[in-house]
Design a protein around this nucleic acid. Structure first.
Lengths: 187, 187, 187, 187
DNA sequence: TATGAATGAGTATTCATTCAT
DNA sequence: TATGAATGAATACTCATTCAT
């Protein structure tokens, strides 16, 4: 089952979404198609599995930031979130890239939202626990922050942005944005 | 040929990427498949064409900002860029959404980069013309800024972020980020 | 298109329902699967086409009997119907046999009834025009008569009954049944 | 083994022929597929088994008629046979319908004949024992009679004929046919 | 130049059957 | 004797692309 999972990532990376077929995945995993279908009910679930695992890693990382949030400013926490986010993305670059291939399909099927929720909540709660000027409308800021980070990460992994600078870009942007927003009244 | 072009967009909008077939496009354009193939060598080129057109609209909009850039601060210009960017995206929301589907297919084929270049340049040049503290490494900042804006827009159009606040989120974020970066030495 | 039709019958006969696949039909027809699907929207429609053609031949034959029905007794007409019925069945034994292979599938999908209707009507109307003692509840008698004839024919073509005697068995049975029923009050 | 047998019928009834799979049968029987294959060498044999059982029920019923055949006319006996036949069919209507689906698969494989033989014999012997004018060629008449009854029953259970009148239609037809045939010289 | 019928490789998914445990 | 995971051939159907007219 894990072999199938990893094979999916490999096929996605080396062949692309259009060539992600159940047969190819099974072959690379060293099992038969039949076996693949014993573990995953259909092709979509294969793609979904990658997504879920990734969002869980991200959420866990951000929850780490949240749990040490006391006595820190919103901007500092935002930078920490950005750092944690980028590090997870960078830790398994293949998985990250594979995810981009798959994202369009899943978004079309509205499968994203559930998996994303825990991550959203972690960011929102981290900002809510910050010291000093509170962030009004933390929910909205959390979503915008994550969206911007996702944009940066995607650009980096798709080759539009130099990966080496990613962590710094992300922390600066996150810190600046949240600093600008903290203490403001809600829109 | 223009009819084919528009038909592609229509099919994408009304039927989705999975049902974007050459026959369907030809039908909607009122021509035969054979004729379609006389103007576009393959299906990919059709999708590429609409993506390119979109990037050109974005570039044109940002170039408008660049051309009025004199005597304005980097942060103010960044906010203007964000506003222009969001407005183009918002003008034809379904098309924008459709393009995210198409982009996934194309990114894999690295066809995007060329089309993106003019947009990048426009942002970079705008920042370079700003008044006051200059933006070091404008190229890099431009790319990061566009990446973040793309992330925000995507989240909004994919439904993860409320669309109504998009313009404000984008301008605040862009302004704050560039303000933070302006005057700094290059990394 | 006609080649596809005939190929379907041949495959059904030589290979059986279980081996009636779109590929095999296309091959035997000397066309590609794609072409097959340009003429028949799906596999079921292929089977249905056989059914319809057959019922139309039967109906036409019985309508011939009906049109010469004046001044004849119900029993004599019933025998004529039986004769006409058997002759159509016997004229193209392959098609008849192919139909039996297919019938179960179609009945399961309730596709039979429509095609059968014209045949039913022809039998009913023939009986209604008969001379002498009228057949009460001609509709019901018509259906029962057709059912019995179908049973005889099936048995003959499936090999359970000697085909040589079929016409006689059918005419005797039909004549006797309708004679017994004519002049009776409806149940 | 009996559990498997009953499970087959249940699956056929509740799910239809297309969903009659070895795994489903095993599950419903509360055993593993492996075990199923210890009792039935393949899927076909399962279907064959229930068909055989059905023919045995029919044969048993007709044998009852045969055993009380003394001093009765051929026509009366034929009507009794028809009644017995219909009653077995009507006792478990869904099973009867399910069997028509199964029969289509099996007829092709000519497995039916053996099972049908006892039924044929019972009808033939019943007619042979009738009082009065003997039925010439009882074998042939028996087969024709069974074929006609099968046709009526099938039509009724497939919905082409009203089921309520089935018993009457069958007895009238059987009686009339055999009366017409009794005393005649063989063809 | 335009047509659209024909092609056939390619896809997801199912299921009878086997065999190591 | 019983299990059930693994197999992989088989199926219906789609669609980008070609080419004779």
């Amino acid at each position: 089952m894990d072999a199938i999972f990893e094979a999916t990532i490999q096929v996605l990376l080396k062949e692309g979404l259009a060539r992600l077929t159940t047969i190819r995945v099974a072959e690379r995993a060293g099992v038969s198609v039949g076996t693949l279908y014993q573990y995953f009910p259909n092709k979509l679930s294969l793609q979904y599995a990658i997504l879920v695992r990734h969002f869980e890693e991200l959420a866990t990382a951000v929850e780490g930031v949240r749990d040490g949030a006391a006595n820190r400013s919103p901007a500092a926490l935002a930078a920490d979130i950005a750092r944690a986010y980028v590090r997870v993305k960078t830790a398994r670059p293949e998985l990250t890239q594979a995810l981009y291939r798959v994202a369009a399909v899943l978004q079309q099927n509205k499968l994203t939202t559930g998996a994303h929720e825990r991550l959203n909540a972690a960011v929102r709660d981290t900002l809510a626990r910050a010291d000093g000027a509170p962030v009004a409308d933390a929910e909205r800021v959390a979503r915008a922050l994550l969206a911007a980070l996702a944009g940066l990460a995607r650009a980096a992994f798709e080759g539009e942005l130099k990966s080496e600078g990613l962590e710094e870009d992300a922390t600066v942007l996150a810190g600046a944005y949240v600093a600008a927003v903290a203490g403001r009244p809600a829109a």
